[in-house]
Every structure is written in C-alpha cells, then in structure tokens.
C-alpha cells in the first residue's frame, strides 16, 4: 500500500482557491449556497463561481461559501441574499486582498421572490408580483405576505421565483 505524506502547509486554500478580483460570500448557513446562486443569477453569465458546501466553521458548525470572480456584489444584492443567509459576510477582493468587508442586512421587505405558500392568497390566483414583509422573530426570520397577511418561516416556503 502506498501512503502519501501531506505537506505541513494549510490545505484549505486549495479546497476553495483564492481569487484575484471579485466577491467572497462567507458564513452562509449550510445548505443555502445554491439558493443564493439562483437568486443572484450567478450561474447565468460567464463569471467563474466557486462553491464550497458544508465547510467546517467555528461560528456556524458548518457553512457554505461562494467565490465569484470579477464581480462586486452591490449592497442591494447582498441584502437580497440575507433572507437565505442572514449571518453571511461579504468580502470584496482586489488583487488577492480583502479591500472591503461587510455583513448583510436583512431587508424590511422582499419583492418578486417568494411564492406565497397560502393557496388561497390572491397572489396565487392572479399574475402579479408578490411582496413579503420580513421580521426577525428570535432565531428565525418571519415573512408576512403583504396581501393575505399570513406569516411564514423559511421551512413553510415551498417555492421561489428566481429571475
């Protein structure tokens, strides 16, 4: 049997390689990275996107991570992803260095993204945009439909409308 000895240096940087320019979305709640890729339409153009799933994290236990090359997320885009991953941090990278770092802010309302889980809601009967008011009720975010006024948690939401 052949055995391989590991070099002494940290291998983590090889697992998810460093980028020259772009954005690193870190501390994403495990399991939410693919939702974020859809909501920000990161797969829909030529940018290179690297995704790490279930990476060990001191803060979260496990986390996801996304690196997007040559694209700087705007604060608005960052806030949109906050409904999936309210603890995530955004690192703007320039020349392999962190040029800017900020935490996402949960928006007060979110439009056109969530499909109302209430089948009796008018938004499921007519072709129209949805809108949810977001509140931070303890551990979990709560989403109140602007139309039917029903309150939901993430687990209740069955469908998102991705752009």
């Amino acid at each position: 049997m052949t055995t391989f000895s590991h070099p002494t240096k940290d291998l983590r940087s090889f697992k998810v390689f460093t980028i020259e320019e772009g954005t690193v979305i870190d501390h994403i709640d495990a399991g939410q990275a693919l939702n974020i890729i859809r909501v920000l339409d990161l797969a829909g153009n030529d940018t290179i996107v690297t995704v790490g799933l279930n990476l060990p994290s001191k803060k979260l236990g496990h986390k996801d991570l996304i690196k997007v090359e040559f694209r700087n997320l705007t604060p608005d885009e960052a806030n949109k992803l906050a409904i999936f991953a309210p603890h995530s941090s955004i690192n703007i990278i320039k020349n392999y260095e962190v040029a800017d770092k900020f935490l996402v802010t949960v928006p007060k309302s979110i439009e056109r993204l969530i499909v109302c889980p209430n089948p009796s809601c008018i938004s499921n009967a007519e072709k129209m945009d949805t809108m949810f008011h977001v509140s931070n009720g303890g551990e979990h975010l709560k989403f109140t439909c602007h139309y039917c006024e029903k309150k939901f948690q993430h687990d209740d939401i069955l469908e998102y409308k991705y752009s």
């Binding site: 209430n118 008018i122 938004s123 129209m128 139309y147 039917c148 006024e149």
Partner: peptide, 28 residues
C-alpha cells in the same frame, strides 16, 4: 367581498378610489 385572501389590498392597487373590505376569504 372576494373569496381570495388579500383581494382587497390587490384591488386597492388597481384604483385610487377608497376600498372598503367587506371580507377577503378567511383573512380580514
């Protein structure tokens, strides 16, 4: 009055005349 929940709020977006909700499904 309308059977869909949220119908009155949707109606209010369609017109600038005041809407008095006489019941929208099981909502209000």
């Amino acid at each position: 009055r309308h059977p869909a929940e949220g119908a009155a709020r949707r109606a209010a977006e369609a017109t600038d005349k005041p809407i008095l909700n006489g019941g929208d499904g099981a909502n209000q």
